[in-house]
Each structure stands twice: as C-alpha cells, then as structure tokens.
C-alpha cells in the first residue's frame, strides 16, 4: 500500500505491507534508527515519537495509519547542526541517560508532556512518564531534567 507522510520536515512516499508498524517503517524503510523498540506489548515507550504534535508509541500505529501525518522523531527535534532542543540539553545537563536506549522515546514523551502541562509538579512528571520505561537511571535524573526544562529560560518548548 502507498503511504506518504512528512518525517522531520521531509516528505516520504513509500509502498508498504499493510501490517508494517510505523516504528518499523521509520527504522527500516526510512532508516532513522534513533527510535527504538523495547517491547511487543506497547508498555515501554522506547518507540515514542510525535505524530501531528502529539506523543504516540509508534509500535501501536500502522504505517498506513500515519498516511498524511507529520512525524517528528528524535532526529528531527533539533536542527542537524544547530543547538540541541532544551529538553535534550536538560537531559545532558542532568545526566538523565545512561545506556541511551530509552532516551529518544523518553525525550519525545517529555517534550509532549511539557506541551500539555508547561509547569508540572514532580508528581505530574512521574505520572506523565509512567508509560516510558528506563532500566538504568532510576528515573531520578530524568524527572529532574524535565523539571529543569520546564523552568529553563525560553522553555518549555
């Protein structure tokens, strides 16, 4: 089946099998491997992207369902040679990543969280990230980074 969508500002047209998941399309067909797969039951959030501005677990969407949509993955969050997005910056400043596997999904989920709630409490951040699992950081520094991004000058974005 034919699909066309915009990924990180670039338009993409392809022919996919109807059962292709969006995450596999992004990784295998488009070749953007920043978005990861950590489970097969939609629990881990490693595959989180923005679809038309909202965070979505891309393993829960078929590529054909994203036809016409505008997708942002971790690779598209900041300009390739420009400065990092404030959320990326906050993750670095606060050591909110270790192995990095959850990170792209976590950052995208965090960006979306602040879009919906620009000044969350710590509890709201924790609740808001419940669907994104991290095995390395114990979440402490992730929560800290999101709170820091929320109060950063110019943030949240």
């Amino acid at each position: 089946m034919k699909v066309s969508m915009t990924i990180n500002g670039r338009s993409v047209d392809a022919d996919v099998e109807p059962r292709t998941l969006l995450v596999h399309f992004i990784r295998n067909d488009v070749g953007l491997t920043g978005t990861n797969v950590g489970c097969d039951t939609t629990n881990c959030g490693a595959c989180t992207i923005l679809m038309d501005g909202e965070s979505v677990k891309s393993c829960t969407v078929l590529a054909v369902q994203a036809d016409g949509a505008s997708i942002t993955t971790i690779e598209g969050l900041a300009e390739p040679d420009g400065p990092m997005h404030p959320m990326q910056e906050a993750f670095r400043e606060n050591h909110a990543l270790q192995c990095g596997y959850c990170t792209p999904g976590m950052v995208m989920a965090a960006v979306s969280l602040l879009q919906e709630n620009p000044s969350p409490t710590e509890a709201e951040v924790r609740e808001g990230l419940e669907g994104n699992l991290c095995r390395c950081t114990g979440y402490h520094n992730i929560v800290k980074a999101v709170l820091a991004a929320a109060s950063a000058p110019g943030g949240p974005k």
């Binding site: 491997t33 978005t35 990092m84 670095r92 990095g100």
Partner: peptide, 20 residues
C-alpha cells in the same frame, strides 16, 4: 563532568546491534 557520550544518544540515538 558531563558525559561526552550524550550528544549522539540525544540527537540521533545510539547505534545498537539492530540499528547497524
């Protein structure tokens, strides 16, 4: 000291076996 490793993980993601 902040990690040298981080920018890659944060901007394009790591290179894990299944990414190669």
């Amino acid at each position: 000291v902040l990690r040298k490793e981080d920018p890659k993980f944060l901007t394009v993601g790591g290179s894990y076996v299944d990414d190669l």
